[in-house]
Write a protein that binds this DNA or RNA. Structure first.
Lengths: 153, 153
DNA sequence: ACCTTCGGTTGCAACATGCTACCAGCTTGG
DNA sequence: CCAAGCTGGTAGCATGTTGCAACCGAAGGT
């Protein structure tokens, strides 16, 4: 590859997000973090990922401000990984992927995990993309515009 | 790598989505498709990706039912790639990543593209994860549960 | 006819991924 | 308190994937 191409200077926020999260493993780590996992070993067992890969990804997520390393909550000398506020803001991304997967990647009746409301165990409502006035918009209702760069003399 | 690990048999919809989309290039292709791009050359110029990579990704997206190959709309003998309904359902995913990137990956005043309402050029409202009753939920308000596999006699 | 564009394919080099071993601090049972 | 086993990593290697550049046939333009 002569170095995987980076998007961290792209002007498109989607590209930068993609670059910041890193790769798919990272997103699954974030998913597990939302699910309450905090320890290296928990992630490793849950994902089945090689430990060196997990090490790399955790470091990248910490460096990127998505995770934070804190002293363990159980009083042991180990450390734990928790989501920063920035990392918690990835919730809609994970939910969007989850809903898409539920809708398109399982045959009827196939078992799968589901994210539900803790209070009543009912599934969540579908994510809606909506305009400033609350109207639900489709891709055709939107346009990408460039925000003017500040004028240079 | 001895083969990149696949998640297409995972019971977690997030993992399957991740697997179905393939990699980050694919997601940027989808983003461009939402932006109206349809031709091989358009994607190639927009992304700056090597043509062999683009070829691979487009084929994978077509095989995965995200894109469809159709005769060109301008009457030429070439073919174009358009989003299938399944592909269009990725809209919330792309929007979620875009909003996250806008919120966390740009310094104030840094220029970036923005997705706006076509009718009034105003930015979209933020995606909200909500329960079945419309209440906005945070990660802490939710739990992942396993859906029972159908009982086998 | 000639040249350009479009949409790829092929070959190669560099790099990332994954596997398996290994290892240094904790922590725990006896 | 001492050994055994966790926990959280590193190190080394084989293989796969990415990326670059060069090439190529068919369509289109002039």
């Amino acid at each position: 590859m002569v170095k995987r191409t980076s998007f961290d200077d792209s002007e498109c926020p989607v590209a930068r997000s993609v670059d910041a999260v890193g790769d798919w493993w990272s997103l699954l780590i974030v998913r597990d973090a939302f699910d309450g996992k905090r320890r290296f070993g928990e992630f490793q067992r849950s994902l089945g990922v090689a430990k060196n890969i997990l090490t790399t990804r955790l470091r990248a997520l910490v460096a990127g401000g998505v995770l934070d390393q804190v002293p363990a909550s159980d009083g042991s000398a180990y450390r734990e990984y928790v989501l920063t506020p920035k990392g918690q803001d990835l919730f809609p991304v994970v939910v969007a992927l989850r809903q898409w997967g539920e809708a398109h990647s399982f045959r009827p009746g196939e078992p799968h995990s589901r994210l539900v409301d803790r209070r009543n165990e009912r599934p969540l409502g579908p994510l809606r993309v909506q305009a400033a006035d609350g109207r639900v918009v489709t891709p055709d209702d939107t346009v990408v515009v460039k925000v003017e760069p500040p004028r240079e003399p």
